[in-house]
């Protein structure tokens, strides 16, 4: 892992806090282990249910066809995995992957509740995915990239496992396009969100981290540049809800 190879004196951001690179992964793990059981309820509360529309857009844009191989990185509770599994059908294969065991456990339980069993579930770090080169038609990462320590390494790793012609779709919070919306969003994120975290999940700190990590995530054009640097082509940004969320898509066109 890149964090293991890095200089122990190097720091990275964990929300607004600077922490040693090696510590970020552990602290992110603690956050998601803490929120795993109430993750979907909180998502509905925090986004007023709009996260379902954002995910629907990703599913439509992905256009998964029967027989395709799909990797859902940082798939958490398996929302995207479930839909991709229906579209890929019995000839296809969808792999649910997450670095966090608690989130994966929650995802596996929810998929089983929906009657989806026998699907590969892999605990893996997005920075060094344990899959062969050119093995997936589609790789998605939904609301996960901002928690990755070395985002460039993760993008390179996800491109590596894409087949020629395959596509990577990144769904992530981003920067609102309108200054007025940005102010309202700031108030919501830093005042209301931690309060909801405290009341619903009894975990104010984790939800404060979620809000801070969104602000520290690269904006639309920066992330697009990072994807291009990772070797992805025809990169396109789709802003949703005024840029609060952005979907980035790029293709691995190298033969």
């Amino acid at each position: 892992m890149s964090s293991d190879r890095s200089d122990p004196r190097d720091t990275t951001h964990f929300g607004f806090e600077q922490v040693p690179v090696g510590d970020k992964q552990r602290r992110v793990r603690e956050v998601f282990s803490s929120v795993a059981s109430r993750y979907d309820v909180m998502n509905d509360l925090m986004s007023l249910g709009i996260h379902r529309v954002w995910k629907r857009f990703v599913i439509d844009l992905a256009g998964v066809r029967p027989g395709e191989r799909v990797l859902d990185v940082a798939g958490g509770t398996g929302d995207l995995t479930r839909e991709f599994s229906k579209l890929a059908g019995p000839q296809g294969q969808v792999v649910l992957s997450d670095i966090n065991a608690a989130m994966l456990g929650e995802g596996r339980r929810r998929l089983a509740d929906k009657g989806i069993v026998g699907l590969p579930v892999v605990q893996a770090n997005a920075e060094c995915l344990p899959f062969a080169d050119a093995s997936f038609d589609l790789v998605t990462i939904g609301f996960g990239l901002r928690n990755v320590t070395d985002k460039d390494a993760a993008l390179r790793s996800m491109r590596r496992v894409l087949k020629p012609g395959g596509r990577l779709i990144v769904l992530e919070f981003s920067k609102p396009l309108n200054a007025g919306l940005s102010k309202i969003y700031d108030q919501y994120s830093f005042k209301l969100l931690p309060l909801m975290g405290k009341l619903v999940a009894n975990d104010e700190a984790s939800y404060r981290y979620l809000a801070e990590s969104i602000r520290m995530h690269p904006d639309q054009q920066t992330l697009k540049g990072m994807m291009e640097n990772a070797g992805l082509e025809r990169c396109q940004v789709y802003n949703l809800t005024g840029g609060i969320v952005a979907v980035h898509r790029g293709f691995n066109l190298a033969a």
Partner: peptide, 12 residues
């Protein structure tokens, strides 16, 4: 870009 996405999804 959403216009592009809409046309692409419809065509596909």
């Amino acid at each position: 870009s959403l216009v592009c996405a809409g046309l692409e999804v419809a065509l596909n």
